[in-house]
Computed example of a mutant assay.
Amino acid sequence: MILGDGVALDVEKLRMRYGTTDVLHDVTFQARPGEVLVLLGPNGAGKTTTIEILEGFRMRSAGRVEVLGMDPARGNEAWRARLGVVLQSWRDHAKWRVRELLSHLGSYYAPYRTDRIHRPWDTDELIAAVGLTEQANSKIGALSGGQRRRMDVAIGIVGRPELLFLDEPTAGFDPQARREFHDLVHHLADDRTTILLTTHDLDEAEKLADRIMILAGGRIIADGSADELSRRIAGEAEIRWTHDGQRFVHTTAESTKFVYELFKQHGDEIGELEVRRASLEETYMALVRQYESGRLETEVHSLQEVAR
Rank of each mutant, 00 (worst) to 15 (best):
E180K: 14
T193S: 06
S255V: 09
G271P: 00
T170M: 09
L163M: 11
D183I: 03
T194Q: 08
L215P: 01
A216I: 02
H182R: 15
T194R: 10
L197N: 01
Q176V: 15
I157Q: 08
E162D: 15
E228A: 15
L196M: 04
I221N: 06
E254M: 12
F165M: 09
Y260M: 10
I221A: 06
Q176S: 14
E206R: 02
G267S: 05
A253Q: 11
A237K: 03
T193V: 14
F173P: 14
H243Q: 04
G271W: 00
T252W: 00
L202N: 00
G218R: 07
D201Q: 03
Q176M: 14
D203S: 01
F263M: 13
R219V: 07
E206L: 01
L166D: 12
G172W: 07
A216Y: 06
T170Y: 06
H243V: 02
E274R: 06
K257Q: 15
T194C: 14
E274M: 02
D167L: 09
E272Y: 02
L184W: 08
D167N: 09
G218P: 04
R247A: 10
L188R: 04
E261H: 14
E204P: 04
S255Y: 05
L215I: 05
S230Y: 10
E274S: 05
D190S: 11
F173K: 06
H200D: 00
E162T: 07
E228T: 13
R178F: 11
L215H: 03
L166K: 06
I214L: 07
E206A: 12
H266P: 04
K257L: 15
D210C: 07
H200Q: 10
M213D: 00
F258K: 08
I214V: 14
L197G: 02
H186M: 14
L229Q: 02
R178M: 12
K207H: 10
F165D: 08
L208I: 01
E238A: 08
A237R: 04
S225K: 11
F173T: 09
L184Q: 04
R232K: 06
V185I: 15
P175H: 11
R178N: 13
G218T: 09
L163C: 11
D244N: 07
T252F: 00
E261N: 15
I214T: 07
T242C: 05
D190H: 05
L229P: 14
I214F: 06
G172C: 12
I270N: 05
E272F: 03
G224D: 11
E162M: 13
L208Y: 00
Q246G: 03
L166M: 14
K207G: 04
V158A: 15
V249P: 00
G217Y: 03
D201E: 01
L196D: 00
D183H: 13
P175E: 13
R160Q: 10
L262M: 11
F165E: 08
D223T: 10
Q265S: 10
T170I: 08
S225H: 12
S255N: 09
I233S: 03
P161G: 10
G235T: 03
L229G: 05
K207M: 08
E269M: 02
A189H: 12
L273M: 02
A222M: 10
P169I: 07
R247C: 02
E162Y: 09
I155F: 05
R179D: 07
R179Y: 12
G172A: 12
V185M: 13
L188W: 02
A209Y: 09
L196F: 07
I155E: 13
L196C: 03
R232F: 07
L188V: 02
A171R: 07
